[in-house]
């Protein structure tokens, strides 16, 4: 293939000359093509829903479409490895991930083909607080009951997976209150809910959206400093402040757009445009309509820029490292 390098070079130069003028304008107008967004989960889930409502409005500010490409597998690892391996450095390719569990992944087991510093999140779109929930049929009725019971015996606690911010919150609480807990990873929010509903485990921890307002389930506490949806989570204890856990609010679900560091460094103006237009979406009335239409709680929509994302990632990495032994099982 490399035999005719010189001839190929000439051919390429000719081609380059031919498209030279549009090539110049390529630099001037960004984005020059549709954006491709790598999503490290399955189509049809919560990330898909959030992405659709956000991208549906963002495209008006960017003047191009945002095309999702789903790469499910290995709790997000496949998506990130693919993004880091395949995405271009011209700021047209982004990743849309869930900062919480996916950053905890790297804490428990760092990625193999790239460094965690090779990409960063720059646009956070929601903050879904972690919550402790129980079946309405359970004999325990409040978080106080749970803590008291946890001091007497080992409680079984369903969670989506061990390396998850909701599990992390529970571990911090148990540690602080001297409770004995046994986290049971159920692989996925639905199984976690089912485990609690059918009485196989004592209680569960999950991002609030996945259990809020669900039949037969009562939310006892939130790993947060405020209850943003009091009508659906009446009487939920604000665990972080009530029990002085000494941790910042760590959303169990925090979806954000990320980009390769190399791309942002190479084209700071393009990156700037992404941040600027992205932030405009939150103020666009169409976005509120889109979120309402997708039946996602507007209260959890949190606009966050580069700094907010960096803080979140920093916090979760720090606490994650502290508990990494337990997160590994």
């Amino acid at each position: 293939m490399h035999k005719n390098t010189r001839r190929n070079f000439l051919k390429l130069s000719a081609a380059g000359l031919a498209i030279g003028l549009p090539g110049l304008s390529f630099g001037a107008t960004f984005p020059a093509r549709n954006m491709e967004v790598f999503i490290p989960t399955r189509a049809g889930g919560g990330a898909d829903r959030n992405f659709r409502s956000f991208a549906g409005v963002w495209k008006n500010h960017l003047d191009v479409d945002l095309e999702p490409a789903f790469y499910p597998g290995a709790a997000g690892r496949v998506g990130y490895e693919t993004y880091m391996g395949k995405a271009s450095d011209d700021c047209h390719d982004l990743i849309f991930g869930n900062m919480g569990p996916e950053v905890l992944n790297w804490v428990v087991k760092p990625p193999t083909s790239f460094s965690v510093d090779d990409y960063f999140y720059f646009l956070m779109v929601d903050a879904d607080p972690g919550c402790v929930f129980i079946s309405e049929k359970s004999s325990m009725k409040t978080l106080e009951d749970v803590i008291a019971e946890g001091k007497k015996r080992t409680l079984t606690i369903a969670t989506s997976r061990l390396a998850h911010p909701a599990s992390l919150g529970m571990l911090v609480l148990a540690n602080k209150m001297g409770m004995k807990v046994n986290l049971i990873p159920m692989s996925g929010g639905k199984n976690t809910r089912n485990g609690v509903l059918t009485g196989e485990v004592d209680l569960g921890v999950l991002p609030a959206t996945t259990v809020m307002g669900k039949k037969g389930i009562k939310i006892l506490g939130l790993f947060d400093e405020k209850n943003l949806v009091p009508e659906k989570m009446a009487g939920a204890t604000l665990i972080n402040t009530e029990y002085k856990l000494g941790i910042p609010p760590i959303a169990a679900g925090a979806r954000a757009f990320g980009i390769k560091k190399a791309a942002a460094d190479k084209y700071p103006d393009r990156f700037e445009k992404l941040v600027e237009t992205g932030m405009k979406v939150f103020k666009d009335p169409d976005y509120k309509v889109a979120v309402k239409k997708a039946k996602a709680p507007w209260a959890f929509i949190v606009a966050g820029g580069v700094n907010e994302c960096r803080d979140y990632v920093g916090n979760i990495t720090r606490i994650g490292k502290e508990y990494s032994g337990l997160l590994k099982g």
């Binding site: 290995a74 709790a75 690892r77 490895e81 428990v108 997976r161 590994k328």
Partner: peptide, 20 residues
């Protein structure tokens, strides 16, 4: 692939696609 509890990848020939 990975087990449900410890998520230890087993016998996956190093392919992330076989992790699940």
């Amino acid at each position: 692939g990975a087990d449900v509890v410890y998520e230890a990848p087993r016998g996956s020939f190093g392919f992330l696609e076989l992790y699940d």
